[in-house]
Design a protein around this nucleic acid. Sequence first.
RNA 1: GGCGGCAUAGCCAAGUGGUAAGGCAACGGAUUGCAAAUCCGUUAUCCCCCGGUUCGAAUCCGGGUGCCGCCUCCA
Length: 476
Amino acid sequence: MKVRLFDSLTRSLRDLETAEPGVVRMYACGPTVYLPAHIGNFRANVCWDVVRRTLELLGWRVRKVMNITDVGHLTRDDTADGGEDKMEVTARKEGVDPLAVAQRYIDRFHADRRALRILDAEAYPRATEHVPGMIALIERLVARGHAYVVGGNVYFEVATFPAYGRLSGNSVDALVAGARVEPHPDKRHPADFALWKTDPSHLQQWDSPWGRGFPGWHIECSVMSVELLGTETLDLHTGGEDHLFPHHECEIAQSEGGRGVPFSRFWLHNRFMNVEGRRMGKSLGNYWTLDDLVAKGFDPVAVRYLLLSVQYRQPMNFTLEGVAGAKASVDRIRGAVRNLVEDPGAPPLAPAEAGEFDALEEGFRAALAEDFNTSAALGKVFDAVRKVNARGPFDPAGAARVRALFGTFDRVLDVLREDAPRAGGAPDSAIDALVAERQEARRARDFARADALRKRLDDLGVVLEDTPRGPRWTRR
RNA sequence: GGCGGCAUAGCCAAGUGGUAAGGCAACGGAUUGCAAAUCCGUUAUCCCCCGGUUCGAAUCCGGGUGCCGCCUCCA
């Protein structure tokens, strides 16, 4: 099946084509680890997880790499006195060194990521481990006339790269015309950006031909992506819409200026999400972390569902009401599989019926293949849910077909599996005993006692259902 | 000042020329000892507003209004 995706650079839907048939080399811009990631960061991560899982479902092999920015970068790409380094700010505040800060938030990022069922990337390269490669690329840029050295700092000269601005839809002139690009004493052009800063006072510093200092923010991605994926032209490069400019614009200029080949065949950018109708951001401090939501009793899987329920290229509004609704949706999907009754005496699937299931599976794949339209894909999932719930018992072959269908859905969604119950709850054996006791009461038609026992179970966080095949319980 | 996006029921949201998917919530019915789950039904004569193109527009074009994003660290 052809996959069409929206390429930010050409602003068009294009069929996915890669250098190596059947293999996608994908690079995702990852977190800067000086604060816990918030739910907006994870929207991006879930989006790229959906991309990766969709491609794998459709038969591609995906090599995904995500960087970890563990070098502090200035809050302003300015003279050395112009800004503060955020890693260093956190390090000072917490009284530890920057690497300890980084490690703490890296660990937390991965814990949250796993809770949200975002599959492992092939590698998570850290900027601090790839400085020599960055220096090499910067030297190459200087040698090729794309960069210049001023007082130990190295700047990329945008005037030498005519395509600068193409990704973000700006021309260099337009960027200057905008009031927000200020003239800079060292820069030949206000839009020139730093590749290397010499600064002996910076906590993290490395030797370079231009002095002891640290790399500019953008250069790490140009270097690590190529080193880890083993190609100078990536197939897919992803990031948030905020990265269109300047980050990815600069990556393209550096990479193509230094190497002379296109940096990536496709650029994907996710739209931001708002929280309760307002924008969120690290610097605004109004963000939810996953821990915050778990503390409110929400299931990370519900969060995952909510984040993937809106297509990546649409802005989404995150609300607590939405998380609760997402949990209900997940329970409904799970219910279809859980309630499926397999009976050897049940009628087998009629050809038309089987055809409908096939069509739903095909529709699911097709929706995702069209620029990862998860909303439309979920429509197919719920059509299947209703069909299964309405049908009654399935014969073994039919049951297998239905389970396979939901297995296909879940290769992308990954919401069916239930997490292990949280520690501290009543043991299963105690719950089973209460359920059995209630059954006794019901048999004796002592409904007052039965209802009292239901209430006790409810207090233990147990949802009890009486089915035609006997009672069944789940943890809330 | 430059660049870009979005406006569909109470909420989330699909749909890019052929007469409004799906989810949550709500209500009615079936079912149940009561529930839960499930099924059936109801909930947008209409897709921000005005004008245009067309046999036909939520979908295309023009204008307007509102909201949002990037241009500075940020998914």
